[in-house]
Amino acid sequence: MEPVLMAELIAVGALSGTLGALFGIGGGIIFVPVLTIIYGLSASEAVAVSLVGIIASSTGAAAFYVEKGAANVRLGLLLETTTTIGAMAGALVAVYIENWILLAAFAAVEIYSAASMLLVPERAPAPTSEDDPLSFSYRDDKSGEVKRYRVGRLAPGTALCAAAGAMSSMTGVGGGTVKIPLMNLMMGVPMRAASNTSNYMIGITAFSGAIIYLASGSLLMEHAAAIAIGAFAGSIAGVHASRRIDSSSVRRYFSVLLLFVAAVVLLEAGGYL
């Protein structure tokens, strides 16, 4: 691989990894268009390389957040169960639905989530008792405080994660941008805990896809390695950046990011990407 190309891919990985670790979105929304439009990879080659980058960035960040008690591993395991089932179902159903309809529906969900997060103040119900199995806590990196919260609407939230997984696998856009608003707006998980938990979950979602590309031998190894190196470095930068940003700002910036994702998805739906 040419050194210049390698350096460029590492830089792309670093940029995407930083954003991914900071907001819990993985980074596929950046990887795939850049790899196809700028570097001329086919869609399937770009998705395969992107999945490795997503795993490197989300796992790098999750290792830190899980160790510090800033991610909710228990909730992540539960929500990921239905997300995975939804993703499998979505892959089967996707062939029967026009792609532009799926993308437009996805963009609508993103715009609704962004508007809700910008307009509705964050509410995180406090736990009612110490023994409550749905009561959790996390350490806020910025303030250093341990904050307690109670997960609400567990059943509908878990069921909707299946829809998020289905939507993700049908459109090829990462589920983090759907799961974080779901956890935050519907289940009352504080924004910081939701994005950290999403980092833990995204790697698991991407694993299933990446292993298939790896086993089939269709993964561009050098491209994937360069992107993974950059994404991992970016995840470290994202983790450090998150310590300087308070939770309400993360929520505001995340809403703007959702609008950007919606715009990219709408361009794709219209055939412009």
Binding site: T59, F207, A210, M221, A228
Partner: peptide, 30 residues
């Protein structure tokens, strides 16, 4: 290491094992 070694058996082997380790990490976490 794999990218530094470039094309060829040792480099490809290192890349293959490295990417496999990265890909399996989230499942190992579960």
């Amino acid at each position: 290491i794999g990218l530094a070694l470039g094309g060829g058996s040792p480099g490809d082997l290192s890349l293959g094992i490295g990417i496999a380790l990265i890909v399996f990490a989230p499942f190992a976490g579960v």
